[in-house]
Simulated scan of single mutants.
Amino acid sequence: MNNKPSINYLLLIIIPMVFSCYEPVKEDNKKNLPASSPALHVKNKKYMLIDTKASFLTWQGASLNGLINTQTGYIYISNGELMVENGQVKSGTIEVGMNTIEDKNHGSDNKLVNHLKDPDFFDTKRFPFSTIVITGVALVNGEDRKVTGDLTIKGITHAVTFPAKIKVKNGMVTANAQLVIDRTKWDVRYKSAKFYNNLANQTMSDSIKFYIHIIAKKQTPDLR
């Protein structure tokens, strides 16, 4: 396992979009997923199940010390469904297992990753899941969409809007999205200039990016 950069140079920004450059989800990682919440079971025949082995998020973090230094890593989807109607995604739920956080080398048990799981950041013992509930998907152009929804992290929910490219073809949904948030709205305050004075070059950006890659597959024969 490689040595990790100081946590002072991390800014959690849970993000990509050159998803073809990322490695597939490791089977070992799936063992780290806690039991998911039961709220995602839906009987609607137009729902498509998210493939948790092929879907994932990347995160990017940055510190602000005159220059922006970034770190990246992975986090995995534990459960989810998308509702498709007339060949278009209309709504859905994405559930993320917060205890699956990894660094860029897929390290999952080191100083950096364990700090991200602590109360300073995501407090994953108390809040093992984060969710995105998609409430609307508006056509922009071609495969480009504007997605609206509710993001819950650490038990705190705020509305979000973000761009995505979504394709529905042959009973499968492929979606790539970029979500940027102000982490302090979800009580992730570690080394934020909004709450701490005299941080100097240890100040961390309040922005968090999530690059989301989703594959969802047909569940019922009558889905178009």
Rank of each mutant, 00 (worst) to 15 (best):
F56H: 14
F122L: 15
N65P: 00
G87N: 12
E81A: 04
R126C: 00
Y74K: 10
H106K: 12
H115G: 08
V84Y: 06
L57F: 15
Y74R: 13
E95Y: 00
T72W: 10
P34A: 15
K125T: 12
G97C: 11
L67N: 13
N65V: 05
T93A: 08
G87D: 11
E95I: 04
A62K: 13
K46P: 00
D120G: 02
N69F: 08
P119M: 07
G97I: 05
T72L: 01
L116N: 02
L67Q: 13
K117L: 07
R126P: 00
Q60C: 11
D51H: 08
V113K: 01
G92F: 04
N110Q: 06
G73H: 08
G66R: 07
N69A: 12
H41I: 09
S55R: 00
D103E: 11
A39Y: 06
M98G: 04
F56T: 09
T52V: 15
L82H: 09
L116W: 05
I75K: 03
S55Q: 02
K90A: 09
I75C: 12
V42M: 08
S36E: 11
V96E: 04
G107M: 05
N65F: 05
A39W: 02
S78Q: 03
K117D: 09
M83F: 03
T70C: 04
T52P: 04
M48C: 04
S55N: 02
I75M: 13
K125C: 00
W59Q: 14
L57C: 15
F122A: 04
